[in-house]
């Protein structure tokens, strides 16, 4: 719960911000891109690399939980449709 209070005391937090690559209504690729970028970032730079966090926040707010869960499962099973280490 303390997590809640910290976040909400900033009234106008910018959740994902504007990404010029995805200006229109269809945000599917936006969600996908953030997920992929986050995991590539982690693989390349390690989990503690601070700027990766931005991708994490973006895809957390943009993607449905069911989608991220499915992709996590795919990654664990080695089925993820993209090579994350390139």
């Amino acid at each position: 719960m303390s997590d809640d209070e910290e976040r909400v005391t900033m009234p106008f937090k910018f959740v994902t911000g504007f990404d010029a690559r995805f200006p229109n209504q269809n945000q599917t690729k936006h969600c996908w891109q953030n997920y992929v970028d986050y995991h590539k970032c982690i693989l390349a730079k390690g989990e503690d690399f601070k700027p990766c966090r931005q991708f994490f926040i973006a895809y957390r707010s943009l993607c449905p939980a069911s989608w991220t869960a499915r992709w996590d499962d795919q990654r664990d099973a080695g089925n993820f449709p993209l090579r994350l280490d390139q």
């Binding site: 719960m1 997590d3 809640d4 937090k13 957390r60 939980a65």
Partner: peptide, 12 residues
């Protein structure tokens, strides 16, 4: 879902 808010247990 309100994905911006989650408590510590990763529950949304």
């Amino acid at each position: 879902q309100y994905p911006d808010f989650s408590n510590g247990d990763d529950e949304e």
